[in-house]
Amino acid sequence: MSRAGICGIIVAVTAAVSVWTLGVLKGSTAGVIGAIDRVIEAAESGDSGKTERALDELEDCWREHYLKLSFLVQSGALGDISYAAAKLRGLYENGADDFIAECEGIKAAVRLVLESQEPRAQSVF
């Protein structure tokens, strides 16, 4: 196969994988945000059992999402989110006032990571 042919395949595969990855990330980010929303909802309803289960679900969901993101995003940004997510259970158990604020903060950070991967004018230039 000619060099141009091989390069054409490389570019096509790279573009296709990039688009596919973005789709996977969007789905995964939506999953994490959904899990955080459920934690907030459960915490606001005052149901501690439901909140514990929602926190378990969020931890699993973030672990899975982290694995996918680690192939694409610098680990520094992900480390900050992991650190904040790890604090959630302790904050809830101690009845901390900023529990919901921390959840919202994680949500915003997860959304920012996805936005940094989206091909927008401000991220490309």
Binding site: R3, A4, C7, G8, I10, V11, T14, S18, S70, F71, L72, V73, Q74, S75
Partner: peptide
């Protein structure tokens, strides 16, 4: 991530070949 090195290298080479 490794992919941040691999993708630009092969993109540059492919563009140069094109």
């Amino acid at each position: 991530p490794m992919i941040m090195g691999i993708v630009p290298i092969f993109t540059f080479v492919s563009l140069d070949v094109f």
